[in-house]
Design a protein around this nucleic acid. Sequence first.
DNA 1: AATCCTATATATAATTT
DNA 2: TAAATTATATATAGGAT
Lengths: 187, 187
Amino acid sequence: MGRGKIEIKRIENATNRQVTYSKRRTGIMKKARELTVLCDAQVAIIMFSSTGNIKGIFDRYQQAIGTSLWVEQQRMGEDLDVLEFDELRGLEQNVDAALKEYHVITTQTETYKKKVKHSYEAYKNLQQELGLREEPAFGFVDNTGGGWDGGAGAGAGAADMYAFRVVPSQPNLHGMAYGGNHDLRLG
Amino acid sequence: MGRGKIEIKRIENATNRQVTYSKRRTGIMKKARELTVLCDAQVAIIMFSSTGNIKGIFDRYQQAIGTSLWVEQQRMGEDLDVLEFDELRGLEQNVDAALKEYHVITTQTETYKKKVKHSYEAYKNLQQELGLREEPAFGFVDNTGGGWDGGAGAGAGAADMYAFRVVPSQPNLHGMAYGGNHDLRLG
DNA sequence: AATCCTATATATAATTT
DNA sequence: TAAATTATATATAGGAT
């Protein structure tokens, strides 16, 4: 897709890798946005690039907490970025941080909202039937508020934004309380 | 990108919409897979198409529970699908179901695993500092098991799979127990 | 290291099978 | 309908700024 054909294997040169990441990320996000519009679909994309420099990360962190750890945009078709890093903690010796980028693209319709609600109920049932026992450590969150309909009657075709972030813990699927074993010792 | 140029707006014809969804989904997944390889990045994509017929959905559901609600693949660069639907529940009148498709593409390195662990710790701290209070309803889950390193020493470059699914609830960020108000009444 | 610039590689809309 | 085929629209690699 360019002047030359490239083999799909890790780009060893860090600069080139970052450039390619940036370009291709843009491309994927564009396509995802198109898909949401064309097919009335919901697409959520989370990308974690393994590159990124500490200065840039720290700058973005400061900017982020300037408002909130959540950086939300309610306009449809916009991207959403949330960043967090380990520099902040300083509890380990690792020097270069993970730059995490969260992107969510979504189209929200009343019809969809209903469907999600139904699936949610169905899923709860399935969990019981299957007796799942995993204790997940991360959480995909719906930040639209307490309920599925957020406010008043809500006009058809209203746009909402779903977002993702890392959360500290979750109960297991049988109602266990928060506070399990999360001693994340390395090696 | 085809015989004719199309305008980026909802495709009204349901058949065409589904065809386009399918084709473009394949395209996006391919690009995401390439990105993970080229840039040593982690990319998670979740797509919810609003179309899909009941028969096909039910077939896929049966296939899914034939093994597990989780359909996992440990090979790197593979996709992951988890499906659930509201036909199963039948608690509402809605006829056509939401077909949900979860796709996760990931490259897992020891370095990355460390970074995630650090970010996780950092995030916990930030949450306390910011006093976040949201009670998310969905969860992005890490299904690699109890800890970050799953087993023994673990060889460098080992591939793990992160997956996403809907979970029934989460505690808030201050340690509240599972079992809050999740009465999802519709409008 | 971002942004612009093309030549080329890919994705895909329309069409055919 | 679904799958293969193409003509065309887009994405992007490599280069210049």
